[in-house]
Design a protein around this nucleic acid. Structure first.
Lengths: 246, 246
DNA sequence: AGAATAGTGTCTGTAAGACATTATGAC
DNA sequence: GTCATAATGTCTTACAGACACTATTCT
């Protein structure tokens, strides 16, 4: 008769290296909108593999320090941008034998949305250089390391789709903004134009913004400055904007 | 002056166990609809931890055998259900220090949709028992091991949301079915009723189904039997059904 | 006044909801 | 005929698109 092992004994004797297992990392696609362009933060690798090439911001889970994988993403994000509480959402996980030449590897990818003026790029600590580059049709001009071009393309498609039916772009705005500025951010991400009357109806009708009372002086008719409504989560609309929902 | 290491030397000397790293697994929420209920497949654990408790179907990546994490999910799915080509979609990745008592652990969760009649439950090989249980409001009556109750709840919410604007439930139907049967599957997942005229307009208008010419005899007026249109991907509607989009 | 940008009025189009009506079988 | 289920007709409602129009500032 087989002797039963108690859970206590089992855990005491458990060796996680019995089987060969993949490596896990966390990457974050850090987006902002600036100068009428969707930008992503690229980081230059200091080490092999892909030494000196550009990649998305990422790193390994520190199992001593990080409670969960989102904490890893937030830690790396703050290291690179100085921003503590951005909008952060899990996008997907890529795992296969070939994406990293060293080993079977898995990476969980998040994306972050940051207002451009909130960012203070942090150089030095990990000695990597970093820069913002424009994303057009899901692509950047740089050749990226690992499978990060594919990840960026997929993530940007997800972002575009969500922008068609949510208020996500509000997370890219500074404290106060005009409705026209918000519309331009939508249009920049979607790479299309939106009819402005529909847009205003949609945003105001969902109570997403509040008038500040201040106006933006632009040399022509001044525009009302709005702020995000407090205690409003990301809004989900029941209808998409019309712009080819894949 | 520091000597430069070539990528070749770097890879040759790379030891993946230098840092403590999390364990990775793949879990799949296997759904079907039967007897007017959304069901999920539970598997009884043969080993510690959570020995003898019920969990979602899952397992470790076999880095020799599996090309990527989706292959792991498909392999496990076929082992449990005998189905080779179900609808399979990545849901999310959960990773933290406490979800597995043995170690900091990461699991990528997929969900699968299977027509009930296509399934032949496989017992034996891994000696685990398995069973279908009803999911109500994202919950099952069983107490699940690991964080699988939380995963199931989140995954079911995702499923419900997608059913509001896609044709996902078609993947749960047998070869032929009536529109009323399809509607019932929608209603079962959403736990609400749908107005039948709107429903028919929506499905037929999107060219998702084709008449077979056969009729279902039910003792009353016979109903047209339809089949899924060939070469039609999962359809994304521009408007949601009205049923609290979270 | 004219240019430029901000913002409104209002008509159309599309698709979902509501619900009455007709159709076809069994008995 | 009645009952039950299948299927259609058609009116209402919600909201996005189109686009003309008014409003407010500047030079």
């Amino acid at each position: 008769m087989k002797k039963e092992t108690s859970e206590y004994d089992f855990l005491k004797n458990y060796n996680p290296n019995t089987f060969e297992r993949p490596n896990v990392s966390v990457d974050t696609v850090i987006y902002t909108v600036h100068d009428n362009a969707l930008k992503v933060l690229l980081v230059q690798r200091a080490e092999h593999p892909f030494k000196d090439q550009w990649t998305l911001a990422g790193g390994y889970i520190n199992i001593k320090q990080d409670e969960d994988i989102e904490a890893t993403a937030r830690r790396k994000l703050e290291e690179k941008t100085g921003v503590k509480t951005p909008y952060l959402e899990q996008y997907a996980t890529y795992g296969n034998r070939t994406r990293d030449p060293r080993h079977w590897s898995v990476t969980t990818v998040y994306f972050a949305l940051l207002p451009y003026n909130s960012i203070v790029l942090q150089k030095g600590s990990t000695a990597n250089d970093s820069k913002w580059v424009s994303v057009k049709n899901g692509k950047v001009n740089e050749k990226l390391g690992f499978d990060h071009e594919k990840i960026l393309e997929g993530c940007t498609e997800r972002l575009k789709n969500k922008v068609l039916y949510t208020s996500l772009p509000l997370h890219l705005m500074p404290e106060t903004f005009t409705l026209h500025e918000l519309q331009t951010v939508y249009e920049t991400i979607l790479e299309t134009t939106i009819e402005h009357k529909s847009f205003r109806r949609r945003i105001i009708g969902a109570n997403l913004v509040e008038e500040t009372g201040e106006m933006r002086q632009t040399g022509h008719r001044p525009a009302m400055l709005y702020q995000r409504s407090k205690n409003k989560e990301t809004h989900i609309f029941l209808r998409n904007l019309e712009a080819a929902s894949s």
